[in-house]
Design a protein around this nucleic acid. Structure first.
Lengths: 278, 278
DNA sequence: CGGACAATGGAACGAATATTCTATTTCTCC
DNA sequence: GGAGAAATAGAATATTCGTTCCATTGTCCG
């Protein structure tokens, strides 16, 4: 080893995945070529470490195995085994016996209520993961900016989207953000309340309801900004809305949960409220 | 190998975790002592196989390693390695790079919209897992029975629970199940519609809203069965409702998502509709 | 241009772990 | 109760994989 230098894997190994990420970030940019390749590959495939061999990681990063070993030592571990242990522990803590329990529920037989719960839980979980994976941060930030500048936020959502709209109305009310829920109780409702300085938040999924499209068009005609919360093939809306946030909701059978949409809507509401206060 | 017998790990290895469970179920009861011990242990700790060594599984089951090997062959695999591969693949498919993405989002900094999404997604996922883990199957089955026998289902849910109630109204409508949403639009609403043969499904969380409690009391006075969908410390309701379904919703900061409640509600609705049709 | 040092790749080594083999015990059926 | 077969445990073996070492290449500075 080098003469007076700090020897690589001495005592400062990351104790958690968080630590690991921090260290990775610190080292970024000041590493030799092969080590940097390792860092890049590991950063984008953190989850694979727990289950991969040195050879597999090396191949993924396009480097020889020995380079991966040096990378582990730079990161503060004595070797690959110690690094892997960190990720394995994180992985087993993440899924204690949830998977087993789900399988047990599902094993009850098709049509059993408990089996249905398991299926919907699974679909919901997948939707959440898809949301985290595919989130368009740019669009989200833009939506927050638009809505936080609005005098009043108009909420449009009917049929399947109505629960989301009504939940947003509740949350905005709690947070002291002026919002109007267009529920269509008495026919075509509050259209005349769309005033300059307001913004419209439309929640809608294919097939898009006429009421929502009508509101969107009207808001557009009056020059109000429109934020749409919708599903990916947002063809019709992409031309009408200023900002489009898409959510992929996995469905089980003919039924779709709302887990991901609600999570996104809630985050949006809180972010808007926070932005307005500053 | 044996003379004319079917050699153990020939061709019929389970191709999925589902297959594996089926096989385990088939074999149950007709195995020699040590193999049965392996089967029992594996069945209750399915998730550990992906990350454990033969020796660890053996210790967990209280058998020598060679017994585990024989178990693997009985299950149709050539050995432990092949069996482990099945579970590792399942595990890595379950969490592609979701964890990485989440961490990236969170790293954006507190208050950032994307960070909020990550937090709510995480809270939602935990809620889902809690639901799967703690689900009371007996209560669920009882709720399905009660509701499926009702002439009309009355839905009560206000404030934070209103989105759930309105979603249920939408789903029941889609499924052709007679249901009335008590939305309180015009004051105290449809109380008089509580008729003999009906049932009440109340969705409510602490602090319980007066409207919901009033409806529950009224339904009880008229002798109608009441199903409550609520959070664990359901002290007030446990005396009033016939069936209590509890859901633990993890909250982030002062905010609670509805992911788990909606998943449970949806499953309940579908199960009720299925039961009615048979 | 050349010396020194860091970085690299591949091969050799060693530890951990799956797998097989066989002597012994246990069970079963006549 | 005994003969045969099945099951079992522990040791021996094979394999996989992490780790180390060293010769070679590349890079920076005098």
């Amino acid at each position: 080893m080098p003469k007076g230098e700090v020897l690589p894997g001495s005592r400062d190994a990351p104790q958690s995945v968080e630590d690991f990420r921090d260290r990775l970030h610190t080292l970024n940019g000041q590493l030799p070529r092969r080590l940097q390749q390792c860092a890049d590959h590991v950063a984008t495939h953190l989850d694979r470490i727990a289950l991969s061999t040195v050879a597999q990681v090396a191949q993924g990063a396009g480097v020889p195995p020995s380079a991966v070993m040096r990378f582990c030592q730079i990161m503060g571990f004595t070797g690959y085994a110690e690094m892997q242990r960190l990720f394995r522990e994180a992985l087993s803590r993440a899924a204690p016996d949830y998977a087993t329990r789900l399988a047990n529920l599902k094993a009850g037989g098709a049509g059993q209520p408990a089996t249905l719960v398991a299926e919907f839980v699974e679909a919901g979980r997948q939707s959440m993961e898809a949301l985290a994976r595919d989130l368009n941060e740019t669009a989200l930030n833009q939506a927050v900016t638009t809505l936080s500048q609005a005098r009043t936020i108009h909420l449009a959502g009917f049929r399947r989207s109505f629960p989301v709209a009504s939940y947003l109305a509740y949350v905005f009310d709690k947070l002291g953000v002026p919002a109007v829920l267009h529920d269509g109780v008495a026919g075509l409702g509050h259209r005349s309340t769309l005033q300059p300085g307001d913004a419209l938040l439309a929640i809608t999924f294919a097939p898009y309801s006429e009421e929502t499209l009508a509101l969107v068009t009207q808001a557009r005609d009056r020059g109000l900004p429109v934020v749409a919360l919708t599903d990916p093939p947002a063809s019709q809306l992409s031309g009408l809305a200023d900002t489009v946030l898409t959510v992929t909701e996995i469905d089980f059978g003919a039924f779709r949960s709302l887990s991901a949409v609600i999570a996104l809507a809630l985050a949006l509401a809180v972010a808007v409220a926070a932005r307005r206060e500053t």
